[in-house]
């Protein structure tokens, strides 16, 4: 197996995906979960740009990456706002505590 430049970048992408996935698995704090989601999306962005660079279609990749960045930012903003409201109303950011609440 030869390590082509794209494969080397893809190894980095897979590392980022692994870090984000691990964060989603072990985090109980709502804001920490948003951080893990951000890491996952950044991995997808690097993959898109690397693929575009490799295929000689960097402008298409940039256009798609821009859409992903905007969607990702909206997700982060909404997640953070939800976290703040949950903290105000329930006094905790712990996901496990939230799932115990009945009402």
């Amino acid at each position: 197996m030869t390590l082509s430049p794209l494969l080397i970048i893809m190894i980095g992408v897979i590392g980022l995906l692994g870090a984000g996935f691990y964060g989603l698995l072990v985090s109980r704090n709502l804001i920490k979960i948003v951080v893990a989601l951000q890491v996952l999306v950044k991995a997808a962005l690097v993959g898109l740009i690397a693929a575009g660079n490799y295929n000689g279609q960097i402008n298409l990749a940039q256009s798609l990456a821009l859409t992903v960045i905007i969607a990702d930012t909206i997700v982060a903003v909404m997640g953070i706002a939800l976290g703040v409201q949950i903290r105000r109303h329930m006094g905790t950011l712990d996901v496990r505590e939230l799932s115990k609440l009945k009402g």
């Binding site: 698995l25 072990v26 985090s27 804001i31 982060a76 706002a81």
Partner: peptide, 19 residues
């Protein structure tokens, strides 16, 4: 945005057991 949220929600040292 994260800094704003942390200042509102409080930066408790997270010592929770993971899921």
């Amino acid at each position: 945005l994260f800094a704003f949220a942390i200042s509102v929600a409080g930066d408790d040292a997270i010592d929770m057991q993971p899921v």
